[in-house]
Simulated scan of single mutants.
Amino acid sequence: MTLALLHTSPVHVPVFDALRDAGHPDLALRHFVDEGLLDRAGATGPEAVTGDVEALLAAAVDEGATAVLCTCSTIGGVAESAGAGLGVPVLRVDRPMAAAAARVERVTVIAAVAATLAPTLALLAEEADRAGRRAARVCTVLVDGAWECFEAGDRDGYLDLVAAAADAVTDSEVIVLAQASMADAATRTVTRIPVLSSPRPGLDAAAAVAMAGSPGRADHR
């Protein structure tokens, strides 16, 4: 079975390949990267890239994908909606993370891109509703300078800024790293507050769906 991954940066390719090798060695991955998607979504709103996402999803299916995982939190909701008629499941990488965060009452969301915040907050509220819980009290932190480091290729600077932002959080039961690119910052923190990231649980969920070869697009939310 083949899982297609829709990325907005090539840096995610080796990350998800390594996670596949460690946990799902029998799963074939096919990567689709469009670096302009996030910029366009940030400038005009995620819905503005719906057509581009639809084209990428269709290409993934044409190449044999049995499921698709969108690894960008900003356009994850667009991907889920755009995939409704594809005939294969389309998942967003941050949904399992959001489901875990929805179990508590005080959440801090850390992001490096402002456009990521609204989709992440909406997802947290949706998961709380699905769990029959009251929506969490959510604080948001937009990390100054972090995205500039990421775009400049300064991975250590990026992760250090994200980790410092997480360590500064005090009144929260869980910290959500909103973007997949932030995942390794969790290993650089000293906070005692649980820090959640999306790549591993997101890939685990998508791998289960892809390996099952589910016909049609079921509701995997």
Rank of each mutant, 00 (worst) to 15 (best):
L6K: 06
S9H: 13
V11M: 12
V11R: 13
F16K: 03
D17C: 03
L19N: 07
G23F: 08
P25I: 02
P25L: 08
P25S: 04
L27I: 03
L29R: 10
R30W: 10
H31S: 04
V33K: 06
V33M: 02
V33R: 04
A41E: 00
G42P: 06
P46F: 08
A48I: 04
D52N: 08
E54A: 14
E54G: 03
A60V: 11
E63A: 15
T66D: 15
V68E: 07
L69F: 05
S73Q: 07
S73L: 00
I75N: 04
A79F: 00
G85S: 11
L86M: 09
L91A: 04
V93K: 11
P96Y: 03
A99G: 12
A99V: 13
A99I: 10
A101N: 06
A102R: 08
A102Y: 00
V104P: 01
V104K: 01
V107F: 10
I110V: 14
I110R: 00
I110L: 10
A111K: 00
A111F: 08
A114E: 15
T116M: 01
L121V: 13
A122Q: 14
L123G: 10
L124R: 00
L124P: 00
A125Q: 11
A128N: 06
A128D: 09
D129M: 13
G132A: 05
G132W: 01
A135L: 07
R137D: 14
T140G: 13
L142N: 09
L142Q: 04
D144N: 11
A146P: 08
W147K: 01
F150H: 13
E151A: 15
R155F: 10
L161G: 13
A166F: 05
D167Y: 09
A168S: 13
I175D: 03
V176K: 04
L177R: 02
M182G: 05
A183L: 03
D184Q: 14
A185I: 00
A185Q: 06
A186R: 11
T187E: 15
T187Y: 14
T189Y: 08
V190G: 15
R192K: 15
R192C: 14
I193S: 07
P194L: 09
L196D: 10
S197I: 13
S198V: 11
P201H: 01
D204A: 11
V209E: 09
V209Q: 07
V209T: 07
G216F: 00
A218F: 12
H220D: 14
H220V: 12
